[in-house]
């Protein structure tokens, strides 16, 4: 039982972690929270469904095409919605409301294009389950966890080792200084949004065969991803991943040992208690410089 719960926690934790990562990156780059993050995840799922289940393109090209689409959507979103608003008004709360509007638009487009009903995505792999020490696991879930970890490591090395990643971090830290060093801050911000959308979309396509693809998942995923990012220490990449693990762990284990009925409630009560005892998140954003 413990192993199964741990495996379930790892699965949802990797999804929450990916969404939370997007929240953190956007917060560092633009100083706001993008409440459409969960809907971008669902949109990735729908696009992946079109490529894989409707057009019958093989798995790996489908995933790559989805990733490219999500990257484009993220950049379009930043270029045509977020940055024009940033230029016109200064209050962050107004821009957060704009991301809510974006989430409405995405949900509505999903319903118009793909219909309101949940869609089942056929499995990516031939082998459905595997057995380890007498416990049966889903292969699909293992794949999702693997992709999530690979994605997190990829972003880590991108941010630390490549010059563009370092420029992105510099622009996030101090845009004025970065600009005077010759960094194109507008471009790094746009790429940050694009990467966040891509990471969310990737999470969406990976969970397709496990949970199915629905529009309604978006809002709750936005909330869970946001909770993970904030609990971990808002704006901290590693905090986001840690937060995802904590939230999913709380959910899985309270579902397993207390009641699956109350798991969400227990998780959110725990989130409140963590906030009250550590008002700046688990990894303090100020003491930990990424």
């Amino acid at each position: 039982m413990f192993m199964q719960l741990l495996f379930a926690a790892l699965l949802s934790g990797s999804i929450y972690g990916l969404i939370a990562l997007g929240y953190s990156l956007i917060y560092r780059a633009s100083g706001i929270m993008n409440l459409a993050q969960g809907d971008l995840m669902c949109l990735g799922g729908f696009i992946g469904y079109s490529f894989y289940a409707v057009m019958k393109i093989p798995v790996i090209p489908s995933i790559l095409l989805t990733v490219i689409c999500c990257f484009a959507i993220g950049s379009i979103l930043e270029k045509f919605v977020i940055s024009p608003i940033f230029k016109r008004s200064s209050t962050t709360s107004v821009i957060i409301l704009a991301t809510v509007a974006v989430s409405y638009i995405i949900q509505s487009l999903e319903i118009i294009i793909w219909g309101g009903a949940p869609l089942a995505v056929p499995s990516f792999l031939k082998i459905k389950t595997f057995k380890l020490f007498g416990v049966i696991y889903q292969t699909e879930s293992l794949l999702t966890i693997g992709v999530a970890i690979a994605c997190m490591l990829g972003i880590h090395f991108f941010m630390k080792k490549t010059s563009f990643g370092i420029a992105m971090r510099a622009a996030a830290m101090d845009p004025v200084a970065a600009r005077s060093c010759g960094i194109n801050v507008a471009l790094t911000t746009r790429v940050t949004w694009a990467i966040s959308a891509t990471v969310a979309g990737l999470a969406g396509i990976m969970v397709g065969p496990i949970y199915g693809v629905t529009t309604t998942l978006g809002t709750s995923m936005s909330a869970k991803g946001f909770a993970s990012a904030v609990v971990g220490g808002y704006g901290d990449m590693y905090g986001a991943i840690l937060g995802g693990g904590v939230l999913s762990g709380l959910e899985s284990f309270s579902a397993g040992y207390i009641s699956s009925h109350l798991k969400q409630m227990i998780a959110f009560i725990a989130v409140l208690l963590i906030l009250f005892s550590k008002p700046r998140g688990l990894l303090n954003a100020e003491s930990v410089k990424d």
Partner: peptide, 25 residues
């Protein structure tokens, strides 16, 4: 009262979720 911005937002979001789960269960 000691929470700010994102942390304040999350605490109120959590409060609303807890209330919602309470009235549905």
């Amino acid at each position: 009262s000691k929470l700010r911005f994102a942390f304040l937002s999350l605490s109120t979001i959590s409060f609303n979720y807890i209330f919602f789960y309470f009235i549905t269960r």
